[in-house]
């Protein structure tokens, strides 16, 4: 299972899958997931799968910013919130579902641009504090601006509808489709000129500038794209319950996104997928531990980081290498 030893031209080297077998595997996995969600899964599993798909999107958003562009953010739950509230308000007023979701992502992206401006002066822990400030400010604003956001009581969310009302299963399929699109789009972004500029900024700002990368443009762009993608996830998340309120989007949720990409693997789309899947699944399956659920999850995460500092992605690379080299 390897890229053909003979890559005939540079375009072939750029193809999305290393060879047909990988493409078949990906297609097989996607079809399997669709069948599972559409027909086989119990209701609760459908709900969890939807959450996994949406947190995959949110984690990818954060990973673009932190893993690739190297800019820390402790405020990404605020972008989830901005996407969620924007969409809920528009959707309640009668905007079509996908329009509300798109506008939610764009508004979150615009705020991301603004939050990115301090990154031109601040880095590391100082930038973390400024994004933390944003998180707290958004939380307060949502809690107090009752006319718009319903305050601490929050807003009711009408059932999802595209021409007809969507059942949870259909909605899950929609979310999986969007997550798949986001995965491909962001993977493409990371292997393009833009992705190289992000990594260049992360690895060496001085050299990046000397190559002609405009830090003002690319840092704020990283924030805007990252926030828009996370906002997209936030907008889609609202339909998993019948109301939203500020307590759905706290600092703790920001940290959870952070944990997802650390455990999954920084600067990796696959890592974001693995990390989000693991964490969301744990959150919804270890319920037998009741009060000790947090302890159990914490223990698992510590073990993962301890034995696999590169995250789950590191383990994957090792497994892949093993099979490539098999039988040696």
């Amino acid at each position: 299972m390897r890229r053909p030893d003979l890559v005939r031209d540079y375009a072939e080297d750029l193809s999305l899958f290393e060879d047909r077998r990988w493409m078949a595997l990906a297609a097989f996995g996607l079809v399997g997931l669709v069948v599972f969600v559409a027909a086989l899964a119990p209701d609760y599993a459908v709900y969890v799968t939807t959450r996994v798909a949406l947190y995959v999107i949110a984690a990818i958003g954060l990973n673009l910013l932190m893993g690739y562009a190297g800019q820390i953010s402790l405020g990404h739950a605020a972008f989830l919130a901005i996407g969620a509230y924007t969409h809920t308000i528009l959707y309640t007023k009668g905007a079509p579902l996908l329009v509300g979701v798109l506008v939610g992502a764009i508004v979150a992206g615009a705020f991301g641009f603004l939050v990115g401006i301090p990154s031109l002066r601040l880095e590391g822990p100082y930038l973390a504090i400024s994004t933390l400030g944003f998180q707290v400010a958004v939380d307060q604003l949502l809690g107090r601006w009752e006319a718009l956001t319903g305050g601490r009581m929050g807003l009711p969310v009408p059932a999802p509808e595209i021409f007809v009302e969507l059942s949870p299963r259909v909605y899950a399929l929609l979310c999986i489709a969007i997550a798949a699109l986001v995965i491909v789009a962001t993977y493409n972004l990371t292997r393009s000129r833009i992705g190289r500029a992000f990594v260049a900024i992360r690895d060496n700002e001085t050299a990046a500038e000397a190559m002609g990368v405009d830090l003002v443009i690319y840092k704020t762009m990283a924030f805007a794209i990252s926030a828009a993608i996370t906002g997209l996830a936030g907008a889609l998340l609202v339909h998993l319950s019948d109301s939203i309120n500020p307590s759905n989007f706290t600092l703790l949720d920001s940290i959870e996104l952070l944990v997802m990409i650390m455990v999954g693997g920084l600067a990796s789309i696959l890592g974001s997928v693995l990390g989000a899947t693991l964490l969301v699944t744990l959150n919804h399956t270890l319920t037998a531990f009741r009060d000790y659920q947090a302890v159990a999850i914490g223990t698992i995460l510590i073990l993962v980081i301890l034995f696999e500092p590169m995250g789950l992605r590191g383990r994957w690379l090792r497994i892949k290498t093993y099979f490539k080299a098999w039988p040696f």
């Binding site: 190289r196 990594v199 992360r202 050299a207």
Partner: peptide, 18 residues
């Protein structure tokens, strides 16, 4: 001052940015 986590190829490709 190279981009340490990139391959040599990607480093030089980054030089094509403009």
């Amino acid at each position: 001052e190279l981009f340490d986590a990139m391959t040599a190829l990607d480093n030089i490709l980054a030089g094509r940015h403009l």
